[in-house]
Design a protein around this nucleic acid. Structure first.
Lengths: 102, 102
DNA sequence: TTCATAAATCGAAATATCTCGATATTTAGT
DNA sequence: ACTAAATATCGAGATATTTCGATTTATGAA
């Protein structure tokens, strides 16, 4: 957990929105049958919803991953991203700890 | 409470450190006798501790104020800044609400 | 092995942030 | 009114972020 990187990753409205979208898989088109068991979302679906270029979204997902907000799982040619709930909670605890008086 | 501005204000290590310093008045030199009743800290004291220029710190305190993390109180030629604990808690609640799953 | 598709990386232009010194503003004291 | 001190604002150069299209890499299928 790196506060610096995490706050920087959150300092962008589209990245924050992606994190919200990822709370619920039904925010995206249904997965292909062969991916039915995964609960992540591929880059193309996120790109479509965010209406930004493929390279931008790939970059964004990399930042969110480095910040610990999402984990990536490769399956064939697809990379599936999903939230890392535990790390998200750890981040919130860290910000609280930094901001709140003892 | 403006999440956008608040996160942007936090996205800087010096500004975060200032917020931490302000948790405890004794992190700064003692106040002048005529300011003994105020629990804020003047810009010059913060500048001295942060080792950045006066204009930079004035700017930073403006950002922290706009973000709602501190309040400013003018007394004569001095501006005293202190944390706005209630707003800080409101910010933390808002980030939690945005980040945490329903 | 060749082709097509998904994603990652690269290079660059536009914009934003950081930080400074210089200047302006506000207020207190003479 | 004049001066001095504290803070705020301005203008600018350096650096970082945003976002793109083009290219590269990885994988699966013909």
């Amino acid at each position: 957990m790196n506060l610096e990187k995490s706050i920087a990753a959150l300092n962008n409205p589209v990245r924050r929105r992606i994190l919200e979208w990822l709370k619920d898989r039904t925010n995206f088109p249904p997965a292909l049958p062969e991916h039915a068991d995964l609960d992540g979302v591929c880059v193309a679906y996120i790109q479509e919803k965010a209406k930004l270029s493929q390279s931008t979204i790939s970059n964004y997902m990399g930042l969110l991953k480095q910040a610990g907000f999402v984990v990536a799982e490769r399956h064939g040619q697809w990379t599936f991203y999903r939230r890392d709930e535990e790390n998200i909670r750890a981040f919130l605890a860290a910000v609280q700890n930094e901001l709140l008086k003892p």
